[in-house]
């Protein structure tokens, strides 16, 4: 299955796993599609003990929260743009607002900039209370030129 076929399948209500298979790390972390939305899907990271970074508190590892949010940003791009290849990460910046408890986490992304070659995605991560984010992050990605076609439909 090509990336375009996997994307079309998810957009048509099919299996998210087909798209996830292009990003093995996100699959390994255990990412799930929580809320289907063409432009702003919500992703879920189910809790498991292997994600803990501080067993005494306990709290999720800061790298898990970051990796989840980076994965969410990447999958958002794969889902909404017409990229034939996985965009490359340029940089990533995260602010931790509260400690992530040992429970399911959620992430939602906003495509805040879509240029010819660079996209910026802002990500918000929360747990049981959506109004109390665990972390906020932004990521820049390098796009392949074919993303241009989609820029128009997003601006429309």
């Amino acid at each position: 299955m090509t990336l375009a076929e996997a994307r079309r399948a998810v957009r048509d209500g099919g299996d998210f796993g087909a798209l996830l298979a292009f990003v093995p790390y996100a699959e390994w972390l255990g990412l799930r599609l929580h809320q289907r939305d063409a432009q702003a899907p919500v992703l879920r990271l189910p809790y498991r003990e292997a994600l803990v970074g501080n067993p005494r508190l306990p709290a999720l590892h800061g790298g898990v929260v970051a990796g989840f949010m980076e994965s969410a940003a990447l999958l958002q791009l794969l889902l909404v743009l017409e990229q034939d290849r996985v965009p490359k990460s340029i940089d990533f910046s995260i602010d931790y607002l509260r400690s992530a408890r040992p429970e399911d986490s959620y992430a939602a992304c906003e495509l805040t900039r879509l240029g010819r070659r660079v996209a910026q995605v802002q990500v918000r991560c929360w747990q049981s209370e959506a109004t109390k984010p665990v972390a906020l992050a932004r990521a820049h990605f390098l796009l392949a030129p074919e993303a241009n076609a989609t820029a128009e439909h997003l601006q429309a």
Partner: peptide, 14 residues
């Protein structure tokens, strides 16, 4: 399982 781009064989930034 650390790959972020299966097709190009690149490790995920996470």
């Amino acid at each position: 399982e650390f790959l972020g781009d299966r097709e190009r064989g690149l490790v995920h930034t996470g």
